[in-house]
């Protein structure tokens, strides 16, 4: 009985992993396809599609744009979220619960709705669409995330340390610089990278709020409209590779920090 349960568990695990990893496996495998269609049978391996993608001006421009929008919007969202979390964690403000709710609210709204609202606003205000208009939208979706992560990390532990620092003669700026920020470093790092990935991968806001310069997901989208091709596999695999490397680096940094 117990043995059957055990076996069932491992079989389930294997099947689930098959399901989860299947599309990525197919994606990466057929990025090496030596042919025009990324479907069986597999011919290859060949790196021609990678060469093709790397030589594609528009894709590479999209990649650069995505990096720019993601890093700037993540930094802005982190800054705003950090200040708001400090304000709400330290001070008893009237209506604090409502303030928290307002700041978190964008997290519960579909990106499509946020994009539509901003698009209407830009139209009405006569603001032309650009990378920056999309970046504003990315800050809107990432601000609640950064705020929530940092607010949660500001436990009584941190407040006690800040109080002790003030007691020992530190002014507000010194408290933020010497105590608050270093103690929150892991949370700050995590929030920034999460915001970065969300922005980096976001499609619908970038799609509706950019015009001439577009981000990578939008560029990939227009690539897909011309049908399936190993080029899409290649650029998809490259994005995947970059993301995995970044995640691993963050994990290693975080691990080393916690070990110390």
């Amino acid at each position: 009985m117990t043995r059957a349960w055990h076996l069932l568990g491992w079989v389930y695990l294997a099947l689930a992993f098959g399901f989860i990893l299947l599309p990525v496996g197919v994606l990466v495998l057929f990025s090496f396809q030596d042919g025009r269609l990324p479907v069986p049978p597999f011919r290859g391996p060949s790196l021609r599609w990678y060469a093709d993608v790397l030589a594609d001006r528009r894709l590479m421009a999209g990649l650069g744009n995505s990096l720019l929008v993601a890093s700037v919007s993540a930094t802005v969202a982190l800054g705003l979220g950090f200040l708001a979390a400090v304000g709400l964690a330290r001070h008893r403000l009237p209506g604090a619960a409502l303030l928290r709710l307002v700041l978190i609210a964008p997290m519960t709204v579909s990106y499509l709705i946020i994009a539509l609202g901003l698009l209407s606003l830009y139209n009405r205000a006569g603001v032309g669409l650009s990378l920056w208009t999309a970046g504003v939208g990315h800050v809107v979706i990432n601000l609640p995330l950064c705020f929530a992560i940092l607010y949660a990390a500001m436990g009584p532990h941190l407040r006690a340390a800040e109080r002790a620092a003030r007691d020992l003669g530190a002014g507000e700026a010194a408290v933020l610089w010497h105590v608050t920020a270093p103690m929150l470093a892991p949370a700050l790092l995590a929030a920034w990278f999460l915001a970065f990935t969300f922005s980096w991968d976001e499609f619908i806001i970038a799609f509706l709020l950019t015009r001439f310069d577009v981000t990578l997901p939008v560029e990939i989208w227009s690539l897909l409209r011309s049908g399936i091709s190993p080029r899409a596999n290649a650029i998809g695999s490259l994005v995947f590779l970059v993301s995995v490397v970044v995640v691993m680096v963050v994990q290693l940094v975080a691990l080393r920090r916690t070990r110390r």
């Binding site: 330290r90 307002v102 209407s120």
Partner: peptide, 28 residues
């Protein structure tokens, strides 16, 4: 003074959310 300082910290995020989330939503 503490409350005023608290508002100072929260204000930027609040203004951002008001301008780019609440206002667009109302417009919608």
């Amino acid at each position: 003074a503490g409350t005023r300082q608290g508002w100072g910290f929260v204000a930027p995020a609040l203004l951002w959310t008001a301008a780019f989330f609440v206002a667009p939503f109302a417009l919608m």
